[in-house]
Design a protein around this nucleic acid. Structure first.
Lengths: 138, 138
DNA sequence: ATCCTACAATGGACTTTGTCTAAGTCAAAT
DNA sequence: ATTTGACTTAGACAAAGTCCATTGTAGGAT
């Protein structure tokens, strides 16, 4: 989405071919790519882009709040461009497929004061696990 | 806890000095050590214990259900011996301190069918984030 | 249109976390 | 006491990510 590119320019981002390519790769719903996958797709569009640049750009997008970092499995971090609607994740324990989900209720309210240990709690991250239709029938 | 050692022996575990030391290190409430931390503490008690053995033993404890693997940050996995009461985690975003917490309600019921995408959902993992008292006042 | 310069990209070395393997060791059954 | 196969070891290897010195360039200034 050029929205994203526009917003970035508005924030004083210097627009380079590499950044444009990374932003293009991270586009759509239910996109949850690892840094390496982003790199692979970026290379397809701009062969000389380096791994370090992809990591740098992803890191910048995360600190700007345009992209979320997700750690569903214990392997690589994944990058989720759907940062403007809060959501949680549903992960297939077998094949690793990921969907964005929106549970009802407010889980923050479900943590009693007695369970807060004096912390200032600001956020909660939920990961549902199960089997996707394909893996469940296999 | 020698309960743990007893249970392991009962399950046909061969009892070795290394396994005893790892089991001893993982002892108590609110213990969430990384594999390397477990190794460091184990070495203090048994200098010749190897990293591979610590990883193997932790892996075995996890598959026996005696210890939980927790991935609160994107760095190393942590190992939580409090496996017999289900719980979630509260993490300080600044210093990484971790507490076990028990929210009320049943988050599994809060995911509508329309948000399940045909998955068989069996589990949910919640990570609350915020600042611990020390970090909040700093 | 060209020049400058601060910001960005590069690539390769390095770090961290974890896995694997071949050879040696030892707990416990006999 | 012997035997046996499960357990341990050290170090090589792998994957994910970071760091840094060098080179390149976007975009404002001239």
């Amino acid at each position: 989405m050029s929205d994203l590119l526009e917003r970035l320019r508005g924030r004083g981002w210097r627009m380079t071919a590499q950044r444009r390519v990374v932003a293009e790769v991270l586009n759509g719903e239910h996109v949850h790519l690892t840094a390496d996958e982003v790199h692979a797709r970026a290379v397809a569009k701009l062969p000389e882009i380096s791994r370090a640049t992809v990591y740098n750009t992803l890191g910048e997008l995360v600190s700007l709040g345009e992209v979320l970092e997700v750690t569903t499995d214990k392997r690589a971090k994944r990058y989720d461009p759907n940062a403007h609607r809060p959501h949680h994740h549903l992960v297939c324990a077998r094949c690793g497929a990921i969907r964005d989900v929106h549970p009802i209720g407010n889980p923050l309210a479900d943590l009693p004061d007695s369970e807060r240990f004096g912390f200032t709690v600001s956020d909660v991250e939920m990961t549902y696990r199960g089997l996707c239709p394909d893996c469940a029938s296999a």
